[in-house]
């Protein structure tokens, strides 16, 4: 290939443009899609929070300022949903994490048939969430499911009835389904982190005379800590937004006892078609989550500074 000798040292214009634009060409299609279907609706959604948008009312659409937020301040159902969200998220994350960690530790030991066991215990994660919800709703149904009868036999219930229709117990239904469905996520993540711990560390520790419990506290836990921190943080945000199970199992009932903020937004948008109010709630939820993430980051920073 012939090339014109050039005296100046900068590469030719065309080549520089081509070189610089290459990564953008690769990422452009994904970016365009994200901006068009997520970022733009997000901005539009924020604007809805200050407007009167009702799908069935052709005269709606006007600017209402902070009206939605004032209404929200008076909305007892919203406060109830906020309490329920805390309860739902806290219990789900705690139980998923605990059982997930135990499962990961159990699977970290080699034993015959581990591959098969692993595939089986991770299977719930592949079950579509709506189906997991239906499945557990049916298990709690005394007509068709065994659980109420077992609870009755154990003396936990006076008669076999459906906890999903009991205002005091209903939240445990979706939480149970969520724990069943979410354990694999924690177990997979923690298992991978466990397996990344160099084995000779354990050997060195046992030669130094550390027992299994000491090894867990001095090696396993410190190594898992970053993974635990990040998965718990992400999972908390994700679960507090996760309305599928509740929509499927209880639809927020009975008496709004299982209504969380995310399902409340969905109900407002889907059932009442009040998009403006739904967006206002969503904006508040977004703000709360941002504050939560900020707090976590701050906490981490102070801990790092101390350490």
């Amino acid at each position: 290939m012939m090339h014109q000798p050039m005296k100046h040292n900068r590469p030719p214009m065309m080549k520089r443009i081509a070189d610089a634009s290459e990564p953008y060409l690769y990422s452009a299609p994904a970016l365009i899609l994200i901006v068009a279907v997520m970022l733009v609706p997000l901005v539009v959604g924020i604007s809805y929070a200050f407007r009167d948008i009702q799908l069935l009312n052709p005269f709606s659409g006007g600017f209402v300022g902070l009206d939605h937020f004032r209404a929200l301040g008076q909305d007892q159902a919203f406060y109830g949903a906020l309490r329920n969200t805390l309860w739902w998220t806290g219990a789900s994350v705690f139980l998923q994490f605990t059982f997930g960690l135990i499962l990961a530790l159990l699977l970290d030991k080699p034993f015959y048939g581990r591959g098969l066991v692993q595939a089986l215990v991770f299977l719930p994660w592949a079950v579509p969430s709506f189906l997991a919800g239906l499945n557990w709703a049916w298990l709690f149904n005394p007509v068709i499911g065994p659980l109420p009868h077992w609870f009755y036999a154990l003396g936990l219930m006076d008669e076999p009835h459906n906890i999903l229709s009991d205002p005091h117990l209903a939240m445990w239904g979706p939480i149970a389904a969520n724990v069943w469905w979410g354990i694999p996520f924690f177990a997979i993540t923690l298992l991978a982190a466990l397996q990344a711990i160099p084995r000779d560390l354990y050997e060195a520790a046992s030669i130094d005379g550390a027992g299994p419990v000491q090894r867990f506290w001095s090696i396993t836990l410190p190594f898992l800590a970053p993974t635990i921190a990040i998965t718990v943080l992400l999972r908390t945000v994700w679960i507090s937004n996760f309305a599928d199970l509740i929509v499927v199992m209880t639809n927020g009932g009975p008496a709004d006892r299982t209504q969380i903020v995310a399902s409340y937004i969905f109900t407002q948008a889907f059932k009442r078609l009040d998009f403006g109010y739904a967006s206002a709630i969503a904006l508040v939820l977004l703000a709360l989550l941002l504050v939560y993430s900020m707090l976590i980051v701050l906490l981490r920073q102070t801990m790092l500074n101390k350490g």
């Binding site: 290939m1 012939m2 090339h3 000798p5 040292n9 590469p11 080549k15």
Partner: peptide, 24 residues
Amino acid sequence: EEVTGGEIRISGNRVNDLAPKDRD
């Protein structure tokens, strides 16, 4: 790697701005 300064010539032809595939 890009050449920050100076010149590289193969058979007398400047190749600073040639892609690897065109340098033979």
